[in-house]
């Protein structure tokens, strides 16, 4: 395992890819891997790109990669697509729009299926980001599922959250309802050559004006990802926001909040794994019969088990 990590840290594509799979599959070695690489993390600019389907997230991501590559930065991309709730399988097709970067040593693209996780990310996204960070990628872009549902988990991972809207799709209102507006640090109104772009931009600005005295006012960019218009400026705003996060008291708060949720998540994951085991040991045919006959109830059983795990409450 150590050898694989060494190879990954030296930049070996296949080693990086393999480790991400191990983590994604919940392999028991994951925690050890993370403990080893964690000290090397914290250097990358981590960006989340979210927005509804058809907004052009992948095309925009493609152009953002180009913009950062022009500046000599290396880029890692995690592109997330939904897994089928029926088969557990997935068709991961985001990278189609970024394929021209395949073959550029400075770009690593990884597609992930949600595998049942909600909130717009996949299992293992956080760890994959940390790994790419440790392996020296300067910028890491997470492209969320974009199914129009609430995709707020991205704020737990990204320094800078970009929300992509598009005129004329009629879904801008949906997004506002879904609470996506509140998490945005930078806006892109994409496909800005379409009618209705001014209306969407005005609506967004109006919403932003409702909150006075923000330490950071999210800039609103008009982009045409298809030909790259406005993308450099958009990328510049991302870096500016990143600077702001790293050099302001608000930024520190964000960082603390994120680290705290990280610890919480790791605790939860471990606890839930353990809970599963404990319950399996505790469960018996007899107990199930009692439950079914309403002689006891799930609340009592759970309280009993909890008392055994935490005897001091």
């Amino acid at each position: 395992m150590d050898k694989l990590i060494d190879k990954a840290l030296a930049g070996d594509t296949r080693a990086i890819a393999r480790i991400i799979s191990l983590i994604e599959n919940g392999d028991p070695v994951s925690d050890a891997v993370m403990r080893r690489i964690y000290p090397l993390t914290g250097r990358a600019v981590v960006i989340g790109i979210t927005g509804s389907p058809g907004a052009g997230k992948s095309t925009l991501t493609d152009k953002v990669i180009e913009s950062f590559r022009k500046q000599g930065k290396t880029v890692g991309i995690i592109a997330i697509d939904p897994s089928s709730p029926f088969s557990g399988g997935a068709i991961l097709a985001d990278r189609i729009r970024m394929q021209r970067h395949t073959g550029d040593d400075g770009v690593y693209i990884r597609s992930m299926g949600t595998r049942g996780s909600l909130g717009g990310l996949s299992r293992g996204t956080r760890e994959a980001v940390l790994l790419l960070d440790a392996c020296g990628k300067d910028v890491i872009v997470i492209e969320t599922v974009g199914v129009g549902q609430s995709e707020v988990d991205i704020i737990k991972l990204a320094d800078t959250v970009c929300v992509v809207l598009v005129p004329g799709m009629g879904d801008d209102i949906q997004i506002m309802k879904a609470g996506i507006m509140e998490i945005a640090d930078v806006f892109a109104i994409n496909k800005a050559d379409k009618p209705g772009v001014d209306r969407v931009a005005a609506e967004v600005r109006l919403m932003l004006d409702l909150v006075k005295n923000r330490p950071w006012t999210p800039p609103v960019h008009l982009t045409i990802a298809e030909n790259g218009d406005g993308v450099d400026e958009f990328a510049e705003s991302i870096l500016k926001h990143h600077d702001f996060i790293k050099n302001s008291p608000e930024g520190a708060k964000v960082e603390y909040r994120r680290l705290s949720s990280e610890v919480e998540d790791i605790l939860l994951k471990n606890l839930s794994r353990r809970t599963e085991k404990i319950w399996k040991n505790h469960m018996s045919e007899e107990l199930m019969k009692e439950l079914a006959a309403r002689e006891t109830n799930p609340y009592l059983v759970a309280a009993d088990i909890l008392k055994k795990i935490f005897p001091h409450g």
Partner: peptide, 10 residues
């Protein structure tokens, strides 16, 4: 003119 990239729907 630029080049077209396909729009995949599966």
């Amino acid at each position: 003119f630029g080049e077209y990239t396909e729009n995949i729907v599966l």
